[in-house]
């Protein structure tokens, strides 16, 4: 049977754990607010970009000489998956779920006889995927957005690397796997096709909204403009996913830490109860000893 001292030690250790988890929860809540703000601020750019893409694409007829990013390389043998997780843990099932999702997708592609390559973003994706698929990982990016802010230059580095590979013909199809920030409670894994890019079909809607009659002039002409827009758009998609993922990470951590704090509270209650019982039993035992000692005299 544990002594009273053991109980006291355990209670104080759980108490300090609770302090840490509740502090982490509050930090995560503050960071979540920031991350959400950042995601919101990026919205206008991404909206305008989508609008422009739709407008330009509306004027382009696809031919085999169209940008490869749009029509693909005419092949779908080689796949590239970009798996995006956080750098840090302690955020519940946030990374685990995503990586499981990515693994299923990888296995499925491999089963179909495709070649799969992986790019990981975030330390967790690298560390966990290395166990099963070390041979598939071609590049890992870590420390992006580690200092609270996600820098667009970092994103350009990722997309630049990826586009370089595409130009060399290293892969035909590229998907981005990330956690979408739906709400504080739900960040489901999401898969999005980056290459070839599927154009949004909001084209006509936008035009009628503006009530425009005059046709657009494009400088340079549509095709060249599209070729410039497409890589930027890929950067933007990755950027948006990073922001989503960052907000999701903080939300997941907040929820996880909230649960941990609550569990620690319950544990403290249980332990205090046990401690009080043990103390009572000890006192009773001593009393009995004293009384029976006194009776014996």
């Amino acid at each position: 049977m544990p002594s009273l001292r053991d109980y006291r030690d355990r209670i104080s250790s759980v108490k300090s754990t609770r302090k840490i988890t509740s502090a982490m929860k509050m930090v995560a809540a503050a960071k979540l607010k920031k991350a959400q703000d950042a995601a919101e601020r990026a919205q206008p750019y991404s909206n305008s970009m989508a609008e422009m893409m739709a407008r330009v694409a509306g004027g382009v007829t696809l031919t085999p000489s169209s940008p490869k990013l749009l029509i693909g390389s005419g092949n779908d043998q080689n796949h590239l998956l970009i798996v995006m997780t956080s750098d840090r843990g302690l955020c519940g099932g946030f990374n685990g779920n995503l990586i499981r999702f990515a693994k299923i997708k990888t296995k499925q592609l491999l089963k179909e006889g495709k070649n799969v390559q992986l790019i990981t973003i975030g330390r967790k994706a690298r560390d966990i995927l290395k166990r099963d698929h070390a041979d598939l990982i071609i590049k890992s990016f870590t420390g992006i957005g580690g200092k609270d802010k996600i820098n667009f230059n970092d994103v350009n580095e990722i997309s630049g690397y990826m586009l370089g590979l595409f130009e060399e013909g290293q892969f035909d199809v590229c998907h981005l796997v990330y956690n979408e920030f739906k709400s504080v409670l739900s960040q489901p894994p999401q898969i999005q096709q980056l290459i070839p890019f599927s154009l949004p079909t909001v084209n006509n809607e936008i035009k009628s909204e503006d009530g425009l009659k005059s046709p657009y002039t494009f400088e340079p002409e549509e095709e060249a403009l599209l070729a410039e827009l497409l890589p930027k758009n890929i950067s933007m998609q990755i950027f948006r996913a990073l922001l989503d993922s960052a907000a999701g990470e903080q939300a997941a951590r907040m929820t996880a830490m909230d649960n941990a704090t609550r569990n620690a509270g319950e544990m403290i209650d249980d332990l205090s109860l046990q401690y009080n019982r043990a103390r009572q039993a000890y006192i009773t035992k001593e009393l009995i000893e004293i009384i029976s000692g006194a009776e014996a005299v």
Binding site: L212, T217, F218, E219, P220
Partner: peptide, 16 residues
Amino acid sequence: EGEFGVLPGHSSLMSS
């Protein structure tokens, strides 16, 4: 493809 100025009522244009 060259600097351009825009006044209200400019015709629709998209440029890099």
